[in-house]
Structure formats: C-alpha cells, structure tokens
C-alpha cells in the first residue's frame, strides 16, 4: 500500500529537489556570466572622483532609504523591509533549514525558537499582502505592475504560508503539507533565475555599477 502524501514528500525531497537545484544554480550562473562577460563599453575619460569607492559604498548605502521617502511611500518601504527581514529570519534561523545547510556545507549557526520564527513569518506574510494591496490599488503602481510582479510575490509568499501551516498542522495531512511546503520552495528556486527574483544576486552588480557612474562624475552616490 502506498501513501500519496509520503510518495509526494519523497519526490519533493528527492528528484524534485535535484531538478530545482540544477535549474536554480545553473540558471544563476548563466545569467551572471552573461552580464559579466558582455561587460560595458570602456569609458576612456579620466574619472573626476573615485568610481570604485563610490561603487562599493553604493552596494550598502542603497539599503538605507533616502530622507522623506519612507513617509512618501510607507507601504513600499516598510512593507519591503519587513518582508525581507521576516523572510530571511524564517529562512535562515529555523532549525530544520539550518540542518539543510549543515548537511550541504558542514556549517551551522544558532537557531531561533518558535516564537521568533513564527512572528517573523506572520509579519512577512502581512507585509507581502500589504505590498500586493498597494500594487492593486495605487493607480501608478497598478499601471507599472506586470504578471511577473504578481507571480514573484505569490511565489515568495507560498513557502512562508505553507511552512507555517505545516509546522502548526493548521489543516491537511502533516506529510502532505510538508511536501507542499518543500515543493513551493522548489517552485521559487526554479523561477528564481528567470524572474526579478534574480535581484537577490544582481543587486550587488547593479548597485556597484550605478555607484561607479556617480563616482566617475565626481558625485556622491
């Protein structure tokens, strides 16, 4: 006798993970290499400032909002911050996730308890819903939003929601919910290289590049 939930869980932990990992890693490398090898046209003019220093500075400085912008677009800024922090706390400090890194790379770090993980998850989901709401209601954002934006928002939210349901056994079969949670992460991994999720890797390059442009002009970035 077979259990469909168990079979799905084993498929998610086995072949599906291998497929997702291959596309995830292979896709990221393809896209990064394309960007780096294609390069930019060399600027022959002597720089007025220090492009490299401005480039590195910008990688970090762009994580801090400019004055007044939080007030101008609170949902975008606060929602963005809360979502990213919540997502990474739940992703990187939940013990079962750390066990995966320990198995893969032999490294480990302290994990957070259930209260922290679940609060982070809940906050991230609320932030995500606020971001979706603002995209749907604000006329400017609505006009700028494409299918890709909604897809990415949903794909990033599903692992949080399914993980919360699986851990708390809110509904459904326990095995099935863990399987669905793992599959939702795999969907995120597969979509990663081909959507704007790639910003998690390319933000370093693009911020550096923008910083060097300002540095070359002798401006502060």
């Amino acid at each position: 006798m077979n259990s469909p939930a168990f079979d799905l869980l084993m498929w998610a932990r086995g072949p599906a993970f291998d497929i997702a990992l291959t596309i995830f890693i292979g896709g990221i490398i393809i896209r990064v290499l394309e960007i780096v090898i294609l390069g930019r046209k060399k600027d022959m003019a002597a720089p007025k400032g220090n492009p490299v220093a401005q480039g590195f500075k910008t990688i970090f400085s762009r994580s801090i909002p400019r004055e007044g912008l939080v007030k101008f677009a609170p949902i975008t800024y606060l929602g963005g911050y809360i979502f990213h922090l919540g997502f990474f706390v739940a992703f990187l400090f939940f013990a079962p996730h750390i066990a995966l890194f320990t198995d893969a790379f032999g490294i480990k770090w302290p994990d957070a308890g259930r209260v922290i993980i679940e609060s982070a998850t809940a906050l991230a989901v609320i932030a995500l819903l606020a971001l979706i709401y603002s995209r749907m209601t604000d006329p400017v954002r609505k006009a700028l939003t494409t299918f890709d934006d909604y897809l990415v928002l949903i794909l990033s939210g599903l692992p949080l929601i399914t993980g919360y349901v699986a851990v708390n056994k809110l509904f459904g079969d326990g095995q099935m919910m863990i399987a669905i949670h793992i599959l939702s992460v795999e969907a995120l991994m597969i979509a990663f290289p081909f959507t704007k999720l790639m910003h998690a890797v390319t933000f370093v390059m693009s911020r550096y590049y923008n910083g060097t442009i300002q540095g070359r002009k002798g401006a502060e970035s």
């Binding site: 932990r13 086995g14 497929i19 990992l21 890693i25 079962p96 996730h97 066990a99 995966l100 893969a104």
Partner: peptide
C-alpha cells in the same frame, strides 16, 4: 526531514 533525500550534491556540481 528537511534535508534532501537524494544525492543532490552531484546535481549541484553538474549545474
């Protein structure tokens, strides 16, 4: 339970 069941390192290196 959270660790993949297969030999995913091979898939990763191939990728």
């Amino acid at each position: 339970l959270s660790v993949p069941a297969g030999d995913y390192r091979d898939a990763g290196l191939a990728a």
